[in-house]
């Protein structure tokens, strides 16, 4: 099946330096691809190229099979785009803005009214539909931008930081909305909120200094944390020294380290579940003086920091197989 979004070696140079270098990826229907990276890594620049706002220095992108360079209008008709910061004409009302976008997109007749209503409902901006956008709160402005992107029910959605500036409840609503639409569309979102990636995305692309440094599922990324699956035990101080050699011998244990009042047992990669079972079994059998035991999950911020600060050259990526659509 043809991917709905396809970036091919997208490169953008500003004054000789590459802001984005050889970025290639594809998004299929049913996928939510999370674009993750520090500020200035090239997320927005890449999105601007895919939506036809910026011409790439090299490479190209395709939306629903239409080349953004040679079939710009056809590609733009099939995508909805929320630019960074959700810019909107401040003197217009949300209704006015949606009417304008509907006019440009050539929505007419009964469909036009239906689509405007649907977009207002989906983005929950009905309460402020006749207020000038300038007077709206940040959260409402963001949602007006979202309504504009959804207006023509596009196959492809490109959302640059869709939940930035929203309160936790609004974030939840926007995520729910994106999740509801996910099955029918190909969605590309950029964010630097790590929890969002876990909550929303079927695949993650980590970008740093203009290049892709990882392309995998969020769960896969978590596994890159050296402490992913580590078993942490809180042990009575007097018994700690005697326990350490025993933990070394537990099948599946890689290293054992003391940290404050806790003992951390790192697993041999791939044997995380195994390790926990073995530790608890030994604990019960020998009646260790342990007050607390838990298994740690990988932390995305650790992985994120490692990927975006250490990698000078792109590391080999583990491509997740595209989900069946």
């Amino acid at each position: 099946m043809v991917p709905m979004i396809e970036a091919q070696a997208l490169t953008k140079s500003f004054g000789g330096t590459d802001a984005v270098r050889d970025v290639s990826f594809s998004v299929h229907k049913g996928e939510v691809l999370g674009f993750l990276g520090p500020n200035g890594a090239g997320k927005s620049t890449t999105m601007k190229m895919i939506t036809g706002f910026l011409a790439p220095t090299r490479g190209t992108a395709r939306v629903c099979g239409y080349d953004i360079l040679t079939q710009t209008r056809a590609a733009q008709r099939r995508l909805g785009y929320l630019p960074e910061g959700a810019p909107a004409y401040g003197d217009m009302t949300p209704f006015g803005l949606l009417s304008f976008v509907a006019d440009v997109r050539g929505l007419g007749g009964a469909n036009r009214k239906k689509r405007i209503e649907a977009a207002l409902d989906a983005a929950q901006v009905r309460a402020v539909v006749h207020q000038p956008i300038d007077t709206l709160s940040k959260g409402f402005k963001r949602r007006v931008g979202l309504a504009q992107a959804l207006l023509h029910d596009p196959d492809v959605l490109i959302l640059d930081e869709p939940t930035d500036g929203l309160d936790p409840n609004q974030k939840h609503d926007v995520r729910t909305l994106i999740r509801e639409m996910a099955a029918e569309k190909a969605i590309l979102i950029s964010t630097h909120i790590l929890e969002e990636v876990e909550a929303l995305c079927s695949r993650t692309l980590v970008i740093a200094r203009g290049s892709i440094v990882a392309d995998s599922t969020p769960a896969d990324l978590l596994r890159r944390d050296p402490l992913h699956g580590a078993v942490v035990l809180a042990v009575v101080p007097a018994a700690r020294a005697a326990l350490l050699p025993k933990l070394h011998l537990i099948p599946g244990a890689l290293t054992v380290a003391e940290e404050g009042a806790e003992v951390i047992v790192r697993p041999v990669p791939g044997r995380e579940a195994d390790l926990l079972a073995n530790v608890t079994q030994a604990m019960r059998a020998e009646n260790w003086p342990v007050t607390e035991v838990y298994q740690q999950r990988g932390r995305l911020d650790v992985v994120f920091r490692t990927l975006t600060t250490t990698a000078r050259a792109p590391v080999p990526t583990t491509n997740a197989p595209p989900r069946a659509a």
């Binding site: 601007k48 939506t51 733009q76 785009y81 630019p83 910061g85 976008v101 504009q148």
Partner: peptide, 14 residues
């Protein structure tokens, strides 16, 4: 200045 040019020029119009 307001960034709306990005909104305008990513709509399907020349």
């Amino acid at each position: 200045k307001s960034g709306t040019i990005e909104l305008l020029l990513t709509l399907p119009l020349a």
